[in-house]
């Protein structure tokens, strides 16, 4: 099998609300795959199933051939994840954070020391290694957050809106770094709701809205298919041009039901 990540009809429902609806995607090894969609489209939910954090309601997902439900620990060993939230402990130092996760992945001793040093130098934080992460700026935290996801040399890395809330310099750094990861042979999945980012980074792009993948393909093919000059035009062609003023509460057959986080609050996190 030549796919690094493959999903078949992957579906997730929360209390009857379908957040991801029959998504089938194939991500080729060593490429950057973009997932573009508005807030609440279901991007994070889809990827949480791929990285074993959520159990699919139905459908299947494989990472390097390992079934996420049947062989979760095999998947966990080869996948690195940069979530929207920082997976770092604020009172621990940069080094301690990386060492903790390194050890949880079974790396130890000289190998761990070397790995931590290499990564901290790579993300330009070696000089700050003994500072608590809580004192870092947003950009520094995100760089460390990315280093954390790479501590175990994953073959697949997932980045969920990695440039959200960053300053322009940090955004530039992250985008260049992500492109560099592909150069090292990693398979990259990156989500975004930023059209330019999607266009700049992805070789293949899936456009997602309301839990479904509307279309997927190489960026150039998508553009010519929809007679569009930019990804933005492709996106608007597929999802419509009207404004989406949704309420965060939803009326279902059984009356009002509270949602954990609406489209509005998803932007904040």
């Amino acid at each position: 099998m030549s796919y690094a990540v493959e999903t078949e009809n992957l579906t997730k429902a929360f209390n009857g609300f379908v957040a991801v609806n029959g998504v089938s995607i194939r991500v080729r090894r060593g490429t950057i795959f973009g997932l573009l969609g508005p807030n609440g489209a279901g991007k994070s939910t889809l990827l949480r199933m791929v990285c074993t954090l959520l159990r699919p309601t139905s459908g299947r997902a494989y990472v390097e051939g390992f079934d996420v439900e049947r062989e979760p620990n095999s998947v966990r060993r080869i996948i690195g994840v940069v979530q929207e939230k920082l997976l770092l402990y604020p009172v621990l130092t940069a080094k301690e954070n990386l060492e903790l996760f390194g050890r949880l992945y079974g790396i130890d001793g000289e190998e761990l020391r070397r790995k931590v040093r290499d990564l901290l130098e790579e993300v330009k934080l070696w000089g700050f290694r003994d500072r608590p992460v809580g004192t870092f700026s947003t950009g520094m935290r995100q760089r460390l957050n990315i280093a954390r996801a790479l501590i175990h040399d994953p073959r697949v890395i997932i980045l969920d809106e990695p440039t959200n809330t960053l300053d322009p310099q940090s955004v530039r750094w992250v985008r260049d770094y992500v492109k560099g990861l592909k150069g090292r042979g990693l398979t990259v999945i990156v989500t975004t709701h930023d059209m330019h980012e999607a266009e700049e980074l992805s070789e293949e792009l899936a456009i997602m809205d309301r839990g479904q993948v509307l279309d997927v393909g190489p960026v150039n093919e998508l553009k010519s298919k929809y007679h569009a000059s930019t990804v933005e035009d492709v996106f608007l062609e597929l999802t419509g041009r009207e404004l989406r003023d949704e309420l965060s509460g939803r009326i279902s057959g059984r009356g009002w039901r509270r949602r954990r986080s609406g489209p509005g609050s998803a932007t904040l996190s």
Binding site: T52, L53, R76, V81, Q83, K85, L86, L87, L104, G106
Partner: peptide, 9 residues
């Protein structure tokens, strides 16, 4: 951070 722990093998 709980996700970080849960994603470790």
């Amino acid at each position: 951070t709980l996700d970080g722990l849960l994603m470790a093998p």
